[in-house]
């Protein structure tokens, strides 16, 4: 339980749940000696990204370039990576630091192979996100912001990813394959059992089912309730009690 308390305290001072500070602290893996440069292929990608923007608005490419650098750099932006992006864009490094610290999807701490992000926004929370978090946390033995000792999983909380109709959901980023094999996958309609199964599959190198775990897409066929998938009785309509009414102006 002390770990839990610690995580809550540290989260109160960070932009996202895995970076504690919004300033740089030299660490063995991230300091002035750390090196970063885009690979030849990624530099070509960066050039292509830059070409999308007008000559005098090259700094607009900052977010895509940071994303590229993060994918190449095993999932996190080191100081060197941010400095390199600044150099490519021709802006002062601090302008890049500002952007990288603002957006929660840029990581400034080393990540595990899989970045497991549990949605904690209202619809997922109403559908049992807390139970999903507890299951993941118990299974991996880490809390938000921590990485498992085998460097396989980093657990984070995130805000709404727009899959609310299939709540609760998690997203898993796979940083192990560099830019080419980078994946960012949603797993939806989760029960605590489902999510543990997904983590087991990932650990075993298998590919769990992507998207909803219980239906085809987002068709009305059931919902997660109290940590269980509840199938609708055949023909039932869970959102509407009758045929949808027309606009109010015509109903009178």
């Amino acid at each position: 339980m002390t770990v839990q308390v610690l995580s809550v305290a540290s989260r109160a001072f960070a932009t996202n749940s895995h970076d504690i500070f919004n300033i740089h602290r030299h660490e063995p893996h991230n300091n002035w000696e750390t090196e970063f440069d885009f690979t030849k292929e990624n530099m070509a990608k960066a050039k292509e990204i830059l070409s999308r923007y007008p000559e005098n608005y090259q700094a607009s490419a900052m977010i895509p370039l940071l994303d590229l650098a993060q994918q190449q750099n095993s999932g996190f932006l080191s100081l060197a990576a941010m400095n390199r992006v600044a150099e490519v864009l021709g802006v002062a490094p601090i302008r890049v630091y500002e952007v990288a610290t603002f957006y929660t999807m840029f990581n400034r701490s080393p990540m595990g192979r899989y970045h497991v992000m549990v949605c904690g926004t209202t619809p997922c929370m109403l559908q049992g996100a807390k139970g999903i978090y507890e299951a993941v946390s118990r299974h991996l033995g880490v809390v938000y912001g921590q990485t498992t000792p085998d460097k396989l999983f980093t657990l984070s909380e995130m805000e709404c990813m727009g899959a609310c109709v299939n709540a609760p959901m998690i997203a898993v980023a796979d940083y192990s394959g560099g830019v080419e094999k980078f994946t960012y996958t949603y797993y939806e309609d989760l029960t605590p059992e489902d999510v543990v199964g997904i983590l087991e599959d990932l650990k075993a190198g298998k590919k769990p089912k992507v998207g909803s775990q219980h239906r085809h897409n987002a068709e009305p066929s059931g919902a997660v309730a109290d940590g269980k998938w509840v199938e609708d009785s055949p023909g039932a309509n869970i959102t509407l009690r009758g045929p949808p009414p027309g606009p109010y102006c015509r109903s009178a």
Partner: peptide, 8 residues
């Protein structure tokens, strides 16, 4: 350009 606003 030394100063900036980090975080949000």
């Amino acid at each position: 350009e030394d100063l900036g606003m980090t975080g949000r």
